[in-house]
Computed example of a mutant assay.
Amino acid sequence: MAKWLSSTDCIAFDIQDRVARLTLNNPARRNALSWDMLVELRAALLEADDLREVAVIVLEGAGKDFCAGYDMQAAYARYAKEDAARDAYRTGSASFDDDAWKLERFQELLRTAFTVHKPVIAKVHGNCLAGGTDLALYCDLVIAADDARIGFPATRAMGSPPNHMWFYNVGPQWAKRLLLSGDTLDGRDAARIGLVVASAPPERLEDEVMTLARRLATIDPDLLATQKRIVNLALELAGAGTLARLAAEMDSRAHLTRAKRDFDADTARHGFKEAARRRDAPFGDGVVKPSW
């Protein structure tokens, strides 16, 4: 069995039975998405797409979570460092356009799972929040543990999804229901509304994902690419690319709101974890329970 020799600090890479397994590998930070992690993930996805022995890609997270969101600690540190070079480079926060530019750069990295030719299956367990959903919903198929927690609580105070594949997966009403409130769904209910393709008990998630991945891996990768790319072209014709560009600008707009200013002030006083707790406290458990 060949192995990718360029393993990185943030991504573990393995190949089994024509399936490349890419693992977000920073469990201490709950696999939060930093710039460095996304750069390494893009390289790993492109490598898997290039390798002839790979037919299917599985994306998962090490530890307790798939991905708890964007790495805000790294982001705030990065903004401070950029401010020191304000005269020479964009800071990502000096103006509306700088913010949109920064979000578009992140978007290019996140979108890699969508643009590679081979199908990508997201294996979601634990938390899949905010940026974690941006990443998962760019994958071709998402399979979640029944008890996974999926949503974008940051819409309560911090902004709007800067990639916005929600509409294309669940339609306008469920997209509004989840994003207006910032509430989350468990994996079982996410499957019921079509946000993920299937869910499984946590102890069976591995078998569920790998059974599908190996099933797909028996098919000629050129045929897999044909099916993936025609559906993705349909998404593009339905405006997915244009909406993503607009989503970055809408997130930049949301960053100018009073709610975001208040949240940043709360973060400066109490730290991000406590500010998020105070943001979410009025919503109780914040879990949507669809009526069927």
Rank of each mutant, 00 (worst) to 15 (best):
K3M: 08
K3R: 14
S6A: 13
D9H: 12
A12D: 13
D17G: 10
R18Y: 02
V19N: 02
V19E: 03
T23E: 10
P27D: 13
R29T: 13
R30P: 09
R30T: 11
R30C: 10
W35D: 13
W35F: 03
D36S: 14
M37P: 00
V39S: 06
V39L: 13
V39A: 14
A43N: 05
L45M: 12
L45F: 07
E47K: 13
E47I: 09
D49E: 09
R52E: 13
V56R: 01
G63D: 14
F66A: 06
A68G: 04
G69Q: 06
G69E: 02
G69A: 08
Y70N: 06
Y70E: 10
A75Q: 07
A77M: 05
A80V: 02
K81C: 11
E82I: 00
D83K: 11
D83N: 12
A84Y: 00
A85C: 08
A85K: 12
T91F: 02
S93V: 07
S93K: 08
F96H: 11
F96C: 08
D97I: 15
D98I: 07
Q107H: 10
V116P: 00
V116H: 01
K118M: 04
K123T: 00
C128K: 01
G132S: 07
L137K: 01
L137H: 04
D146M: 03
D146C: 07
D147L: 09
R149G: 04
I150M: 06
G151C: 11
F152K: 00
P153F: 07
M158K: 11
S160C: 11
P161Q: 02
P161I: 03
M165G: 02
N169R: 15
P172V: 13
Q173W: 14
W174V: 11
L179N: 08
T184I: 09
R192A: 12
V196L: 12
A198K: 11
P201R: 05
P201A: 06
P202G: 11
L205H: 04
L205T: 10
D207Q: 15
V209S: 08
A213M: 03
A213I: 03
A213G: 04
R214F: 09
L216D: 00
A217I: 00
P221F: 02
L223D: 11
L223V: 12
V231T: 05
A234T: 14
G239A: 06
A240M: 09
R245F: 07
A247I: 06
S252D: 06
A254K: 14
A259D: 15
R261W: 12
F263A: 13
D264R: 12
D264I: 10
D264L: 13
A268L: 13
R269G: 02
G271A: 10
F272Y: 09
A275V: 04
A276K: 09
A276G: 05
R278E: 04
A281S: 09
F283T: 12
D285S: 09
G286N: 09
